[in-house]
Design a protein around this nucleic acid. Structure first.
Lengths: 165, 165
DNA sequence: GTTCTGGCTATGAGATACCTAAGTCAGCTA
DNA sequence: TAGCTGACTTAGGTATCTCATAGCCAGAAC
C-alpha cells in the first residue's frame, strides 16, 4: 500500500463486506448538508462576516432563489440561526449567524482553502488567512490528541474503538 | 462580529466591491473538482485503499458509469494517476492511485469525517481514525506556522501578503 | 394612501448528477 | 473458436441545482 493510504485495522473484514457503508460514514453524512457548491459558498461568506440575505446572495455570487434555499436548508440543519433584529427607522429583519455546529466547519473550509492555494493557484497567492496575534499563516493540520503532527502513513482506521479522551 | 467569524484586514475594501470574488477564491476553485458527492466518496475510498475500478464503484456505492466518470475527471485533474499493472495469468489492468495533489486532500476529508462524527453521530461513534504509533485519535486542527493552535476568533484574512515562510 | 425598498418567493428552463439496464471489448481459459 | 470475466461505455430516464425574470409583502417615508 502507498504512503498516502490509511491503514485499516487488520481485525476488520474486507471493506466490500461492510454493511451500511455510507450510512455509517461520517463523511457521507456530512455531505448530506454540503453536497452543493452553493452551500460551501454560503458558509464561506458566513465566516467572512455576511449576516443578511442580500449579502449572502451578492458575495457568494449566487442567485436569490438559491441563496434563499441554501439559507433555509442550512438553518434547518442547524448550521445557521435566524435572529430577528431591528435597526432604528427600519422594519424587523433576520440575520443569519453561524451556530457552534456551523462554526465547527471552519477546519474543513480552511483545509479546502489551503488546498486550492497550493494546487490551483500555486505560487500566485491571492489571499491568506493568518493567526492575528502572531501574523503567521494558518492551516488545518492533522494532529493527534497527544499533540503529535501525524503524517498520512501513520493513520489507522478502526471501528468501535475505546477512545482515548 | 461574532467569535466564529474571520477578521477582515481593515485595509481591505468592503467585500461587495471585490472583483472576481469567486475566481480568486481558493475554496471556489477547489470545489471545481469536488463539487459532487461521488467525487468525495471516490477519494474516500482511495484513502481507504481502493485502487481498482470495481472497488471504487462497489465500496463507494455508486453506479459504474458514475465511477468511470469520476475516476476520469479526478485523473484528468491530477488527483489520481492511472498505473497499468499485470497479475500473473491476467491481462493488463489499470489501478488508480492518489498523487501528491490528491493525497493532500486528506486534511479536508479528515475534517469532514470528524465534523460528521461530532454533529451527526454525536456520541454514537461508529469508527475512528487514530495515530498508529500512539493510538490517539486524530483531527484536523487549525494551527499557524509557529505551531500555535488558533481559535476561530484569532483568524485574520488579508490579501497579497508577504508570507512568513 | 401611494411609493419605495429590502427581503424574500414563484415560475420555468437549462445543465448536471445520478440511476438501471444493456452493450462492448480485450484477453485469458477450455 | 467459443465462452467468460473484468473494465468500462452507451442509452435513456429521473431528480437536483442553478439561473433569470418577475412578483409579493411589510413597513417606513411622504
Amino acid at each position: 500500500m502507498s504512503a498516502s493510504q490509511i491503514q485499516m485495522d487488520p481485525a476488520l473484514p474486507p471493506r466490500e463486506s461492510w454493511a451500511d457503508i455510507n450510512d455509517d460514514c461520517p463523511i457521507f453524512q456530512s455531505l448530506g448538508v454540503l453536497s452543493t457548491r452553493s452551500a460551501f459558498l454560503v458558509l464561506r461568506e458566513a465566516f467572512y462576516g455576511a449576516t443578511r440575505f442580500d449579502q449572502f446572495a451578492q458575495r457568494a455570487d449566487i442567485s436569490e432563489p438559491v441563496a434563499a434555499a441554501r439559507l433555509k436548508e442550512l438553518t434547518e440543519a442547524g448550521l445557521l440561526e435566524k435572529h430577528p433584529y431591528r435597526e432604528p427607522g427600519q422594519r424587523t429583519r433576520n440575520e443569519y449567524v453561524l451556530t457552534d455546529k456551523g462554526a465547527d466547519l471552519l477546519p474543513t473550509l480552511l483545509a479546502l482553502f489551503r488546498w486550492g492555494e497550493r494546487w490551483v493557484f500555486g505560487d500566485g497567492i491571492r489571499a491568506d488567512i493568518a493567526h492575528a496575534s502572531c501574523g503567521a499563516s494558518v492551516d488545518a493540520v492533522v494532529t493527534c490528541e497527544h499533540g503529535h503532527r501525524v503524517p498520512p502513513g501513520e493513520l489507522r482506521f478502526r471501528r468501535n474503538p475505546a477512545r482515548a479522551s
